[in-house]
Computed example of a mutant assay.
Amino acid sequence: MPIAEISTRIARIPLHTPFVTALRTASHVESVAVTVTDDDGNTGVGEAPQVWRVTGESLAGARSCVDGPLRDALLGGDPDDLNALLDRLHAAVVGNHGAKAAVDVALHDLAAKRLGVSLTRYLGGSATTVPTDVTLSAAGTDALVAAAAQRVAEGFTVLKIKVGADPAGDIARIKAVRAAVGDEIGLRLDANQGWNAKEAVRIIGRFEDAGLGIEFVEQPTPAHDLDALAYVTSRTITPIMADESVHGVRDLVEVIERRAADMVNVKLAKCGGIRAARTLFGLARAHDMGTIVGSMMESHIGVAAAASLVAAFGTTAVSDLDAAWWLTAPPLTYAEGRIVLPSGPGLGVTVDIESRSG
C-alpha cells in the first residue's frame, strides 16, 4: 500500500477573539492543510500555518513546496518505512520547515492509523490528556484583568501574557493580573522580541523585585541577536526561554554553546515536524534545558500533533497548546486547563474545514 497521493487545500478559519501580540494582530488562522493517502485509501493529515513574523513562509510557498518537490519525493514510498520517508522529505528541499512539518505530521498520522493506534501510542506514550496554558492577548489593564479572571474561571491554571508592545505599562498590567488571580495561578510572559537587552533586564528585574512569581519570560529580545538573549539570561533570576531564536537543531546548538537561554519552546512548524522536535528534546535534555511544546496560531490538526508529542514525551513545564481554543467552534476539547486527546487512531482528527476553506 504505497503512498498514492499528496493533496493540499487552503484553510482560513476565524478566531472567536482577535489574537494580539507585540508582533501582530490575527483574526483568522491561515494554513495549508495536507492530506497523504495510501493505495488502500488510508489518509494522514498535517498543516503548515502561515505566520509571517515567525517563519516567514507563505501559504502559496508552502503549498507549492508540498505539491511539488515534497510530493515528488514521497509518491510510491512505503508509509510503514517512516524513517526512510522522512529522510527523503527533509532532503528534498532546503528550509521550508512549515511545509515539511505538515507532511511529517501527515506521515506520522498515516503510519499510526495503519496500525490502528493513536499517534501518542505510536510514539510510545499513553497519556490521554495534556495540560496547557492559555494566552492573554496584549491589552490594557482592565481588559487584561477581565480576560485573566475569565480564563481562571474556565479552569486554566497557567496564563501566558503577551507583553512588549508597551514596555512602560507592562509592569502595572502584570501586577494587576497577579492581584486579580492570586498566587496559585502560574504566570508566564511572552515579549515576542519586544524589548532590547537592557530594557529586558530592567523590566524583568522589576518583576522580580515585586515578587510577582513569573515562571519564565519567553523571547524577550530580537530573535537574531543571541548576544542580547545571553545578556538577559545571565543577568536575571527568572528563567529565559528561546522561541523565535530556535528553529532547528543548529539554532539550539548555538543557544546552548552560548548559554543564551534556560529553556526552549519547540514548535513543529518551526523545526520541520515530529522527528526534528524529538531531536530538539533530546538535545535540550542532555544540556539540562527546560522544554515546552508550543503552537503557532494554527488549527486543531497542528495542535493535536503537538499535544500527542507532549503526551508521549512530556516537557519540563506546562506546554503552550491553546491555539485551537481560539477557533470558532474548536474541534478539540479543552477541559479544566487540559487538552483531551481524541480517542481515534492517529491524530484522531480530520481536515474538517469544508465550511471554512478556500
Rank of each mutant, 00 (worst) to 15 (best):
R285L: 08
A176W: 02
A317I: 08
I185P: 04
F216M: 12
F281D: 03
E218Y: 00
T132I: 09
G95N: 07
A304T: 10
A149C: 12
L123S: 09
A180Y: 02
A92C: 07
D183L: 07
S245A: 14
T350D: 11
G124R: 08
A153Q: 14
W326G: 03
C65E: 03
A269D: 02
F313N: 05
R338S: 09
A180M: 00
A277F: 00
I237M: 09
G186M: 10
T21W: 06
A48K: 03
V29Q: 01
L82Q: 06
G164N: 08
D78S: 13
S234Q: 15
T238K: 11
V51H: 08
G290L: 13
A317S: 15
G346P: 06
N265D: 11
L144D: 00
D320V: 04
A323H: 07
D38E: 07
V351H: 05
G46P: 05
A146W: 00
T128P: 01
A180T: 05
V117D: 07
V45Q: 01
P14A: 10
G273Y: 02
L283Q: 10
I161M: 10
N196S: 15
I240M: 07
I204H: 07
V134E: 01
H90R: 06
R188Q: 13
H97C: 15
T129D: 06
F216P: 00
L341P: 01
K175A: 10
A91Y: 11
E47W: 08
A260Y: 03
D166W: 09
I256G: 07
E184P: 00
A101D: 03
V249Y: 09
A102K: 01
M296L: 13
A312P: 00
E184Y: 00
A73D: 06
D183Q: 12
L115Y: 02
G125A: 11
W326R: 01
R63M: 12
W52Q: 14
R188F: 07
D262F: 03
A11V: 14
